[in-house]
Simulated assay, not measured.
Amino acid sequence: MIGVMGELPTIFVVDDDPAIRQAITALLEQEGYRVATASTGGQAIARLAAAPPPALVVLDVMLPERSGYEVCQRIQALPAPVPVLMLSARDELADRVYGLELGATDYLTKPFEPSELLARVRSLLRFRERASAADRAQPLLAGPLAMWPAEHRAEAGGQPLDLPPKEWQLLETLLRSPGVVLGRETLLRQVWGYDFAGDTRTVDVHIQRLRARLDIAGCGDLIQTVRGFGYRLTIPHVPHAAD
């Protein structure tokens, strides 16, 4: 499992060198972080797709199967932003610029001192926390729907919207990825977690209940079923004066 809400930050370390991977893992765990690892680019991509996102990815450039550059591109497609500390033995300016242009947040050249790695990890996590705090202060909007996650407050058509916990989490997850089709398995992992013993029909039942509550406020049709895939929250078209 890569990321778990409500626990210590999880850092995902991706490096094909066992000695480096184990050394970084030991260093981070000694500082109190949770650590998940992968040894190939393909393994990293698979694990990122199958688990909640980590707080930070420490990513080697030269990896078997898929390069660190390709993994970095996949990370940029995650629903929530994840900082990437890219590691490489290549110190050419062009390599550093290329990694940063692909979305890496920072770049550290091998070999490096453990103290410098830790300093960069702490800095990136502080930046992420500040960005998350600013993001939480902003409402999530979709037509007549508005949600303030930090205040645990939601409105539909200007009226308070009271939701049970799982329906709240479902709506928040959909609001954070407007227009994106989220599969049932994805919703099950993000809302119920990996340890949930049920199946995807649980998602269907809760979506049905959520729609019924939104129907009362006249916006149940915002949640669309994409047959064979999952669900999508649509953004209503607001006509302009010239339309």
Rank of each mutant, 00 (worst) to 15 (best):
A49Q: 13
T109E: 04
L27E: 11
P52L: 15
I75M: 10
P52D: 15
L85P: 07
R66F: 12
P111F: 02
R74C: 12
S39Y: 08
T40I: 07
F112D: 06
S67I: 05
G68V: 02
A55L: 07
V61S: 03
L63C: 04
Q73P: 01
L102H: 02
R96L: 04
P54L: 04
G99F: 07
A36S: 15
L124A: 05
M62D: 09
C72H: 02
P54K: 02
L28Y: 07
G32W: 06
M86D: 02
L78F: 03
L59C: 00
V82D: 07
V97D: 01
P81Y: 07
L118T: 05
L87C: 08
P64F: 03
R122N: 14
L108N: 03
A104H: 11
A119F: 11
D106P: 03
G41L: 06
Q76D: 11
E65P: 07
M62L: 12
A94T: 15
G99I: 01
T105D: 14
T37A: 10
Y69A: 11
I45E: 10
S88W: 00
P111S: 06
T109P: 10
P53F: 04
A94K: 15
Y33D: 05
R90W: 12
R74Y: 14
L102E: 05
L125Q: 05
Y107W: 03
C72A: 15
Y98K: 15
I75H: 02
C72F: 04
P53R: 05
Y107L: 09
T37W: 04
A89C: 08
S88H: 09
L93D: 04
A46M: 08
T37D: 03
T105P: 00
S115T: 15
E70A: 13
P114M: 10
A50N: 13
V121A: 05
Y69S: 09
P83Q: 00
A80P: 01
D60F: 00
S88D: 07
R96P: 01
E65H: 06
V97P: 03
S39F: 04
V121G: 10
P79E: 09
R96Y: 03
P64K: 09
A77E: 13
A46D: 12
P54A: 12
R126Y: 13
Q76W: 06
F112T: 12
T37N: 01
V82E: 04
A51Y: 10
L85V: 08
E113H: 14
L28M: 02
R126L: 14
D95Q: 15
R90A: 12
L100K: 09
L78M: 13
A51F: 14
R66K: 15
A50T: 07
I45N: 03
L93T: 13
D91C: 11
G41Q: 03
A104S: 01
L100H: 10
V58K: 02
